[in-house]
Amino acid sequence: MYKSIIFDIGGVMVDFDPKAYLVDRLCSAEMEEKVYDLTFGSEEWKKLDAGLISRFEGNATMLKNAQAAGCEFEVQGVLDDWTHILRPRHRMIELVRRLKNHGYCVYYLSNIPEDILELLTARGVLDQFDGGVASCEVHINKPDARIYQALLDKYSLKADECVFIDDNLANVQAAFALGFAGIQMKESVGTLVRSLATCNVTLR
């Protein structure tokens, strides 16, 4: 019997599709790939998620690398503008509330930098959760098994009583390997509700 439902944040609770954002912004496949590798796909981005560098340090290094690659202007624009893509998914927030009202514990487990965690907290995205673990707090990113264990330990949870939801398949597979039930989030909230029902997690 599942008692706890665990949600990723980016791509699940809020919109986060950096490649689609870059397509709309740059309209050049070559430049989109280059800018992605210098920003969202960079080592600096992973370090930001893990709380190992500050936003100032991360941006400075990304801009230095962009200058060397001849696309400082494009990367600067992305770094100045990208947070607007983090639109809260209100139907997901409502789903979390309904699950909680039906007696389930609800948590988040996310790769997320400190400043973005603070931003989404201020916007009320996390208000319905009973708690959670952010990568920036424990200095470990998914799909490292240690971040899942950190959540289990923090709230005295059992993996086989938890359902984990993430848009990234590798993260879902890592959770499954530890004994969680795993669901990869697709576009539709209705599809997610049906997937939860297959785990006997119902909202009736």
Rank of each mutant, 00 (worst) to 15 (best):
K100C: 14
A66W: 14
A60P: 09
L151C: 05
F180K: 02
I112D: 00
C162Q: 04
L152S: 09
A69E: 11
A20K: 14
E187F: 11
D130E: 14
G132K: 00
Q173I: 04
H90A: 07
T61D: 05
L169F: 13
T61W: 05
C71N: 12
G77M: 02
L26G: 03
K3Q: 01
S28V: 12
R89F: 08
C199S: 11
G10R: 00
N111D: 15
F129L: 01
T191I: 15
A122M: 12
C162S: 06
N65F: 12
V35G: 15
G70F: 07
S54P: 10
F73K: 15
K46S: 12
K19P: 08
R98Q: 15
V23W: 13
E74T: 03
D8N: 05
T121S: 04
V172H: 08
D115W: 13
L120T: 03
W45M: 06
I147R: 01
Q128I: 04
V78S: 07
N111G: 06
W45V: 02
H139E: 04
L157F: 06
C136M: 00
V14A: 00
L99I: 09
N141G: 01
V23R: 14
C199G: 09
V12A: 00
A170Q: 13
K3P: 05
E33K: 14
S195F: 12
T202H: 15
L117N: 04
R89T: 07
S54E: 07
A150K: 08
L63F: 06
D153G: 13
V78H: 05
V12M: 05
K154D: 03
M185L: 09
E30Y: 09
L119A: 02
T61I: 09
M1S: 15
D8F: 01
D153A: 10
G11S: 02
S42C: 07
F7Y: 08
R98T: 08
K100F: 14
K186T: 11
